[in-house]
Amino acid sequence: MKYTGSCHCKAVQFEFESAPIYDALQCNCSICIRKNAIMSKECFGADRFRLLSGESFLKTYHFGDHDVHHYFCQQCGIYPFHDTLYQPGSYRINLGCVNNIEPRDLSITYFDGRNEL
Results as ranks from 00 to 15, higher is better:
residue 30 S to F: 01
residue 85 L to F: 05
residue 18 S to A: 15
residue 66 H to A: 07
residue 89 G to M: 13
residue 51 L to I: 09
residue 102 E to R: 04
residue 12 V to T: 10
residue 64 G to K: 14
residue 45 G to I: 03
residue 26 Q to N: 06
residue 99 N to R: 08
residue 6 S to G: 10
residue 63 F to P: 11
residue 52 L to D: 08
residue 78 I to D: 02
residue 26 Q to C: 02
residue 113 G to S: 08
residue 49 F to P: 09
residue 12 V to C: 07
residue 59 K to G: 01
residue 76 C to F: 12
residue 67 D to P: 00
residue 71 Y to I: 01
residue 107 S to P: 00
residue 56 S to R: 12
residue 43 C to H: 07
residue 69 H to G: 01
residue 115 N to Q: 13
residue 86 Y to R: 10
residue 110 Y to V: 03
residue 73 C to Q: 12
residue 78 I to P: 01
residue 41 K to Q: 13
residue 39 M to C: 07
residue 48 R to L: 08
residue 24 A to M: 08
residue 25 L to M: 08
residue 55 E to F: 00
residue 71 Y to S: 04
residue 83 D to P: 06
residue 81 F to G: 03
residue 22 Y to D: 02
residue 62 H to N: 11
residue 92 R to W: 14
residue 108 I to G: 06
residue 68 V to T: 15
residue 33 I to E: 07
residue 31 I to T: 05
residue 53 S to Q: 13
residue 73 C to T: 09
residue 16 F to D: 04
residue 69 H to P: 01
residue 14 F to Q: 02
residue 114 R to H: 11
residue 11 A to K: 11
residue 40 S to Y: 05
residue 112 D to E: 05
residue 17 E to P: 00
residue 4 T to Q: 15
residue 41 K to I: 06
residue 61 Y to L: 04
residue 48 R to M: 03
residue 22 Y to I: 08
residue 85 L to Q: 15
residue 3 Y to L: 07
residue 62 H to A: 03
residue 10 K to Q: 09
residue 19 A to T: 02
residue 10 K to G: 01
residue 38 I to C: 01
residue 2 K to V: 15
residue 108 I to S: 06
residue 106 L to R: 02
residue 63 F to Y: 15
residue 109 T to R: 02
residue 76 C to E: 11
residue 57 F to M: 12
residue 57 F to A: 14
residue 110 Y to R: 02
residue 97 C to K: 04
residue 69 H to F: 13
residue 105 D to H: 15
residue 112 D to G: 09
residue 92 R to M: 15
residue 103 P to T: 13
residue 15 E to T: 04
residue 65 D to S: 13
residue 75 Q to E: 12
residue 50 R to A: 14
residue 68 V to Y: 12
residue 38 I to V: 14
residue 6 S to Y: 03
residue 8 H to Y: 13
residue 48 R to D: 00
residue 78 I to V: 15
residue 90 S to L: 02
residue 39 M to K: 05
residue 35 K to P: 00
